[in-house]
Write a protein that binds this DNA or RNA. Structure first.
Length: 491
RNA sequence: GCUGCUAUAGUGUAGUCCGGCCAAUCAUUUCGGCCUUUCACGCCGAAGACUGGGGUUCGAAUCCCCAUAGCAGCACCA
């Protein structure tokens, strides 16, 4: 006989709290950062980093820094400065401080000189190709043994603009015998004359491993969560930390994330926009946050989906289904219901009394009120439903009809009001619209446009997500033209 | 090629550190059923996984070895 408390213990289902794993060294709060490169708007891949960091800052308390990493003028889109901020606001991140790396070049120069003086870096004037070969053979390049004075002089020469592009760089002295060739004397600064940076005038540019290490330390960053493509960078940055004697933050690297059906590469998206394949950054076939927003995906759904994925190191293929499910949870209780008739066919109804249908704006919340749909003799019905040749139909919130067809022309005949009749006959209950007050509506889906008609009341829903009954959720994008434009969200 | 990381149902995820409570969690998905004047929501039920092979052990998803697969890095990108 087992002890009663043991029996109870065994009977208990294991509790699984869905939460991100704890972070070490977080007792006194954390300082974290989201550090995008302003090369375009944010996409789902960015959202993962942004939300994960945000979630930890909120969990442990502390500071969340947005750091714009614009140290490569080749990968800066002036428009992106604005877009990134917009996207972050949309996501609802609790950012406490914004830092632009292009404002901090003097700082980087100062620490570069310091690092050189500490013997942690040297100026390399080798040909790129040549250095790479030497690196593979674990041999020092001719610049490596130069004296401190010579290095400082060369550094001044670099800053004075006396080198052309590619003629000189600053390298961090690591370990030439390191088993990973990627670690051996990696570069920290380069010279660039083209293109010009949109925010500053400079020819000596820091490379990310240097600027990131200096900034993470100076800004007091305690924890870094980023993709595993940065694992090697973390190791490289450690050299810089060690030279300066700085305390190393806690790092976490999550796995690579792909999304079925879309490319999450800013450069590829840009190319597609340029070639006309996509209409813009918010083209609904793209994985940008603005595309999702346009389709009616809510920021909270993105956040939820991303937290659900977590910080695992496994490579994952993100499924739209999971995002849609998260969004449906959020959107279903708030979205008003309307009729949308795709591919409408006007049909006359025989013998039915004129009347007004009262359809609930939300079935689970009658207090919200109704839409009034006047029936005056003929209605629009979806082509697809008529094509099924149903003997009996019920027009939702109206009445039952029998259907007859004559050489492709359909005719409906009034068959009573009783819902039970329709139920008993297993008649489909379908959406409809009065012919005289239906508004043209284009429902834009990723796989193509669907022309139809919808209720006039939809005009009031500009910018919000509605549910087109039996069709799915959609965001009303534009009501100004002669037809309403809606973007399909999901079923 | 070199260096490193990872491997649980269609998808995502828990469990792996400290082997037994795992006949493996939760969500999504799919399929039934109920509810319902939507093919939404809600409720009930079902389906579906420990990459493979060795080893250690009374006992392995969990520890060890090998294999395989995927990924990342080896840029004067981030």
């Amino acid at each position: 006989m087992l002890a009663p408390e043991l029996v109870e213990e065994l009977g208990k289902p294991r509790v699984h709290v869905k939460a991100l794993p704890p972070l070490e060294r977080s007792e006194n709060g954390v300082v974290m950062r989201f550090a995008p490169n302003p090369s375009g708007p944010l996409h789902l891949g960015h959202a993962r980093a942004a939300v994960l960091n945000d979630a930890y800052v909120q969990r442990y308390g502390g500071k969340y820094i947005l750091r714009i990493e614009d140290t490569d003028p080749k990968r800066v889109d002036p428009e992106a400065y604005r877009m990134v901020v917009e996207d972050i606001e949309w996501l609802g991140l609790a950012i406490h401080e914004v830092v632009y790396q292009s404002d901090r070049f003097d700082l980087y120069y100062k620490y570069a000189k310091d690092l050189i003086e500490r013997g942690g870096a040297y100026i390399c004037t080798c040909e790129n190709e040549q250095f790479r070969e030497l690196k593979q053979q674990k041999t020092a390049c001719p610049c490596r043994p130069l004296s401190l004075e010579e290095n400082l002089a060369l550094w001044e020469k670099m800053l004075a603009g006396e080198f052309y592009e590619g003629e000189a760089s600053v390298r961090v002295r690591t370990d030439l015998d390191h088993p990973d060739p990627a670690m051996r004397d990696f570069p920290a600064f380069r010279i660039l004359h083209q293109p010009l940076h949109p925010r500053i005038e400079a020819t000596v540019y820091p490379l990310m491993n240097f600027s990131v290490a200096v900034d993470d330390h100076l800004l007091g960053v305690t924890h870094v969560i980023r993709g595993k493509d940065h694992i090697a960078n973390t190791r490289r940055q450690r050299y810089i930390y060690d030279y300066f004697g700085w305390e190393i933050p806690v790092y976490r690297h999550y796995g690579r994330m792909g999304i079925e059906g879309v490319v999450l590469s800013t450069s590829q998206m840009r190319q597609g926009i340029g070639s006309g394949e996509f209409l813009g950054w918010d083209d609904i076939r793209l994985g940008t946050l603005r595309a999702l927003a346009r389709r009616g995906i809510t920021p909270m759904a993105v956040r939820q989906a991303v937290l659900d994925i977590g910080i695992g190191e496994t490579d994952i293929s993100f499924s739209w289904d999971n995002l849609y499910a998260a969004n449906r949870d959020i959107v279903d209780p708030v979205a008003n219901r309307y009729f949308f008739v795709p591919e409408p066919i006007a049909v006359l109804v025989n013998g039915a009394p004129h009347q007004t249908a009262h359809a609930l704006l939300h079935p689970n919340e009658p207090a919200r009120g109704t839409r009034e749909l006047p029936f005056t003799g003929s209605v629009f019905l979806p082509r697809e439903e008529l094509g099924k040749d149903p003997p009996l139909l019920r027009l939702k919130d109206l009445f039952n009809c029998t259907v007859t067809s004559d050489h492709g022309t359909y005719l409906l005949s009034y068959a009573g009001d009783d819902l039970a009749d329709a139920r008993n006959a297993k008649a489909p209950i379908i959406q409809w619209l009065p012919v005289d007050c239906a508004v043209p509506c284009l429902l834009r889906k990723p796989e193509g446009d669907v022309a139809g008609v919808c209720e006039p009341g939809v005009v009031r829903e500009l910018g919000s997500v509605v549910q087109f009954e039996r069709a799915g959720f959609a965001r009303i994008d534009d009501t100004a033209g002669d037809r309403i434009l809606a973007y399909f969200t999901h079923r």
